[in-house]
Amino acid sequence: MTRRTTVADGMRSLSAGLREFYEAPYRRTLSRARRDEDDLFTVVVLAEALGVPNPASYYTVELLPLVAERVHEWHTRMGMERSPLDSVSCC
């Protein structure tokens, strides 16, 4: 088509290439850090269910459905074969 679109396309692919160049080497480190943080969050939300008194449970109980799907993945990663929760049975 026009020259402008080719230039724009070129810039876009250059940008995408640079972004890949920026992100790829650290993708694993960053996703692992994020997973660790998510794990901590999961433990906080599940605290009451695990028998740990949680002063913020009034608020975190609302978040239970959000972490429920992650419970299975979480407990297997933590080295527990079965879910430690009575309320959530996933396997």
């Binding site: 290439g17 160049f21 790829a24």
Partner: peptide
């Protein structure tokens, strides 16, 4: 999407070379 991502060979070369 984390470790195993098919990458354009020029971008990959750029990484490999600079590492």
């Amino acid at each position: 999407g984390v470790d195993y991502v098919p990458t354009n060979k020029f971008v990959l070369w750029g990484h490999h070379f600079t590492s």
